[in-house]
Nucleic acid binder design. Sequence first.
DNA 1: TAATTCGCTAGACCGA
DNA 2: TCGGTCTAGCGAA
Length: 797
Amino acid sequence: MKGALIDVDYITKNEKPIIRLVFKGKRFYKIYDDSFEPYFYLDADDLKEARSAVEKITINAKGKQIKVKRMEAVKKNVLGEEREILKIICNHPRDVPILREELRKIGAIYEHNIPFARAYIKNKGLVPLEIIEFEREGRFLKKIIKIHENPELKLRMLAFDTEVYNPLGVPRQDKDPLIMISYADEEQGVLTYKKIGKKFVHTHKDEEEIINTFCDLVKKKDVELLIGYNSSQFDLPYLKARAKQLGIPLPLGRDGSSFKLSTRGIVTRAKIVGRLHIDLYNIIVFLGIIGALKSFRYTLGEAYSEIVGKEKKEVKKLEIWRLWDEEKGLEPLAEYSLHDAVAAKELADQLLPMEVELSKLVKVPLFDVCGAMTGNLVEQLLMNKAHWENVIVPNTPKEEEINKRRANPIVGAFVKVPEPGIYENIAVFDFRSLYPSIIISYNIDPFTLNCKCCSEKEAFVSPAGYKFCAKKKGLIPKVLEELLVRRMEIKKKMKSYEQNTREYKMLATRQQALKILLNSFYGYLAYPRSRWYSREAGESTTAWGRQYIQETMKEAEKEGFKVLYGDTDALFMLLGDKVKKDALEFMKRINAKLPEKMELELEDFYTRGVFVSKKLSKEEAVGAKKKYALLSESGRIKIRGFELVRRDWAKIAKDTQEKVLETILREGSKDKAMKVVIDVIDNLKNNKVKLEDLVIYTRLKKSLKKYELISPEVAAAQKAKAAGIPLEEGSVVEYVITKKGKSISEKAELAELAKDYDPDYYIEHQVIPAVLKILKELGVSEDDLLFKGKQSTLNGW
DNA sequence: TAATTCGCTAGACCGA
DNA sequence: TCGGTCTAGCGAA
């Protein structure tokens, strides 16, 4: 038999745990395995004594006698040391948490909190979504024969979305009905119960009938992958609540059940029996966290425009009930509803290939990998590899230890202060995967630290003063090297395909997944909740990083280049009287001296660049770090850190700043840049600017009550709440500074509630500060902008 | 509960 | 009302 592995869990029959595997062949099917036993490890000084102590243990839990099933002495690498320990085999996974408390008294316990199904995957060497070839006996798995690559996984996908009647803004589950359910696969439709003159609309009798029809549709289409956006937190729970209200079932699962909610950290997920339900919102949040996505609100519309590159049809959320009530609102509402489902489908087409790759790489089923955070991905991957390296998985730290780690952060990267100014002919280099390549090169791992086998001379000694083994490879360096090498191979292979081919895109996705993982390892090493945390290892990684970038800067200066700026792994240098070839030769010389897996790469050559000074209370000008704009030889502009890349600045200020930067970079014209600013100031003064260009976006990171300081976004949210628009923790406040009030907070008003704007605020606090720091480098003062601005209104400057 | 540190900047708040 | 300090958010790498 063959099939792509979709999911693994377990059931209990006659008190025995049985692993259940879901495979995808022509359709989903289930295979069982009753041969796998739950276990954990016990490490004690005297194994014989420990053995007899364990044998005596019987715990009475809810009337049942719980005992250890069996014990085996096994040789394992325990926290860097080879030794014999006891493998404690239990009758049922739920016995593990009960027994471990007693066994803890005998010695150290390990791998006691690894979910049973996960342990099965790693023990059997399974890879989700690849084709597993196996022998079976009836419905039971006998033997795994081989795992084949599965480049093309095709699941029957259906995207859906719901609309709800909301006369009070927030819909009430007990009173406000569902009015539309939209869906999209090869065909698209909207289920509703009002007559709407559109081909894609299917009009039914009432709310009950559209819910039933939707469930029938899922069943009839034999949906394998159900896609929603925020569906675990909104659509599905709402559907369930309405079904309950109407007294009808919600048979979305293959067994007729609805779904089960689970929360992991900040992520809520809904699991449907026999189908994969993926909430794209969770993936979007993940991409936001790792910085793979430009910052924005995590709405379907924003995600769609950012990732698919198209605009979604929108209606105002608060208007939905009115559109439903008014005859002429129905068509736009139906179109909007349909497009939500279509957008979710297109978004899934873009996002899922990456999740599929991650699932295969870290060997976690797709459902669990979607929305998993980086710490989790790295941990799963390491736990899997640990099994094959015969290494015990270190325990999760206790709360006390976590707090200790958190209170004592690791010193990070080096950033050079740039000299403010406008420069020409700049070469930018960076170290490819700096931290991963350092970890590999110096065998940095919590358990290669202070090894017994290397003398002071033999070991790698970090600039932070810690010793790492030079003889036996640690788990983390080993895993990282595999990932790094695979990524390099893929990148090489990509060159042999045209960019728009299927093969190229597949490789690009795979490469991207590897990059995400590679970049997550250092963070995991320094993450207080990590199983593989090591202050010494983390500190050594950054210390070597600082050393390499600073030494390279020194070398550059020695060779006669002026080093303009540098941050962590990047180096900006002026060519001066040298040419590109000199810079490339410099790079070659550096590379010749670097360890094998480390490499300095050319990022690009830039014809012009702008660095500005930091805003200080005093007059002295100090260069600002993490803020620059560059124009590449090919005409591409690269801007970092400036207000125009931040969401908490108004569009009018960002656009103006962008135009000023572009003008200076491309044309080098001060007058033209000034003219741009003066025009904008004029428009602001004359009330010619649209309100939407004045909106400032800020996320509320805590609940409203918890703020010590009432900042503008908090004030705006408070007012909004009073007006019946609740904004909870995590939502993005969109506000405008109006004329009404004294302080800026008092003037702040939710964009949809604002009636006017305060031109002075936008001129003095938004546009001027954003552009002045740039124009100052050309000798322009604030008065130059304001005075000429005034003049222009009088006599048309 | 769910990767890290470095860095800039705003606006509130507070005391002189 | 001024200037320093602190809270808070967001971006770079």
